[in-house]
Design a protein around this nucleic acid. Structure first.
Lengths: 321, 321
DNA sequence: GACGGCCGTGTAATCGATTAACTACTGCGC
DNA sequence: GCGCAGTAGTTAATCGATTACACGGCCGTC
């Protein structure tokens, strides 16, 4: 910056003013400064600027698993929304581990992100408190924690799950195997509670960990126990269940029905296409980013609750259509 | 930091030494400082530290599309490798747009990443030159550019594609539709060249843009032109082709054969499972991160060329088995 | 013609760390 | 008792920006 100033025959203050679009500098001075910048290929140091202004124009996003298309879509939406407001997003991959999640959150705080978007790995409010104590704007996404005091953005699947349960009962299923998420996550618990409640005793629950392998294992157990329908509460576990079903040579929906929480672009291409509860991922990501930006600007955004929809496609059998 | 120093009755220099594990401070002093840090909940400001040390312990990664599982896997692998060396990764999503790619690269440079990993959207070496001119360590990943002067990490699919072509010819296919990538990307061109060369005149090529929609359109055109086999040069275009095939009620492999470049976890679950050329994504990501770290440490890593493998699964028909 | 106001720039303090150079103290040998 | 080496800790410069305040020139008014 000093070089630029010297080159243009002005002080660094003037260079800074030109850079930040202040009213002061003469058009002529401005021109000289811009020429010098161009000539020297100068680019301002964002670190120094942030240090001085205490604003990084950066949002932190800590998600549970980048390989899960659900979170990838959310990340993408958050990024789009943030960018359109001049913010940049730094993504942290917690890998469904509370420990790694904490590490990432701290790293992001150390780098002074202007706000943080978090998909908490567990119910534990400890980390959320830590962030709040630091006074950093925080919005929870997809999942919440016990006694959360910050805005939460998530999808409500109750209606869709209730409708799904009704279909299954109506189709005469007697044992519905539920491949549930971890009981220490809000989404894991809530979805399972609503769904088993609506099934009224027909449900048999096995908990997985939101990963493919656990889906296969849970499916195996449930099939062995005589389940006539399987419902996976997350798309990766759904993939695992599907693999197990195929591995055993069972046919959907003839031998067993299947439904999955979270849609995927390839679900409609299976034979039969998979019935799902589809979350509005893009909306969730955008809404979360908007809430966080509002919080950063001193407003108090409300919680956002979007609605997940039941998409019937055929994997439950004719009964559904 | 001043607060901590005051609290512990020492100077900021001493606090800094404790923080950085310097030899100087007495165990007793160290203890007092750590206690003060603990008590005040102090966390060092990474911006200030980086400004002073000119090292951010951060790698930039600019990929073409986060929603493409191929890149998501790479990102994941890069992150793992980087983290294990104490580095953090900032991901930028270029969305297959050269403009957005340039924006991201500049943003990352402004934030003074210690090194940059780039999956270039096009062949154009302009951006690569810009980065090199800035003296920032750079490694190209998956794709290269014309006259690249930096290390490149990629997968070689020639062997697999040649074998694939041989199978198709052997099975008696007369018109093979190739859904190619953009001709201004190295992967798009190379894969197509090798494959059509090996097919010796049986190939009909339509270019897509590495996205699902373009895959469907290309497939439609090729099917209309009487293709008996379709090969998509990227997994998203493969997904699009599959959708088009299903949409027309065609059966694989009876009516048409299909193979895709890039594997996906759900390809084996289709009926029939899809034959693919599988790239070693995790290896690629790790290798790229390692090369970049080597470059940062002043070494001169070689280009890395990994091998993609043909995985036969059934979507080419009995001929393949 | 002198004075007050306004405008474009420059000077210098500041953000929060790191670190070279210096100071103060301890203890040892002669 | 004195000097010297060695060690623990402090002072202050520095990284590259932003910005409050000061300064000097120009113009209009009485």
């Amino acid at each position: 910056m000093k070089d630029v100033a010297q080159h243009a025959g002005v002080s660094t203050a003037t260079v800074s003013r030109v850079l930040n679009g202040h009213a002061a500098p003469t058009p002529e001075t401005r021109e000289r400064v811009l020429a010098a910048i161009e000539e020297l290929g100068y680019r301002p140091n964002a670190l120094a600027r942030s240090l001085r202004t205490t604003s990084t124009q950066t949002l932190g996003l800590v998600i549970s698993d980048l390989l899960n298309p659900f979170f990838a879509e959310i990340a993408r939406a958050v990024e789009d929304e943030a960018r359109s407001h001049g913010y940049c997003v730094v993504i942290g991959n917690a890998d469904e581990s509370a420990e790694q999640e904490a590490t990432y959150v701290r790293t992001l705080l150390d780098r002074r992100v202007d706000g943080l978007l978090l998909c908490p790995a567990t119910d534990d409010p400890g980390l959320v408190r830590e962030v709040s104590a630091g006074g950093v704007p925080l919005v929870l996404l997809d999942r919440t924690v016990r006694g959360a005091t910050c805005p939460v953005v998530r999808a409500d699947g109750s209606e869709a799950l209730t409708a799904l349960a009704r279909r299954l009962v109506g189709a005469g299923h007697t044992r519905v195997g539920v491949i549930a998420g971890p009981p220490d996550t809000s989404t894991g618990r809530e979805r399972t509670d609503v769904f088993t409640g609506a099934l009224g005793g027909l449900a048999q629950v096995v908990h997985g960990d939101f990963r493919q392998e656990s889906g296969s294992q849970a499916a195996a157990k449930l099939i062995d126990d005589g389940a006539t329908a399987l419902v996976a509460m997350d798309n990766l576990m759904g993939l695992g269940a599907l693999a197990e079903i195929r591995g055993r040579g069972l046919r959907i929906p003839h031998d067993i029905a299947l439904a999955v929480f979270d849609d995927q672009p390839w679900f409609p291409l299976l034979d039969p296409p998979i019935t799902v509860v589809a979350q509005p991922t893009v909306e969730m990501g955008r809404a979360a980013a908007r809430s966080l930006l509002a919080l950063i600007n001193g407003q108090q955004p409300d919680d956002v609750r979007l609605t997940a929809k039941l998409v019937l496609r055929g994997s439950l059998g004719e009964a559904e259509l």
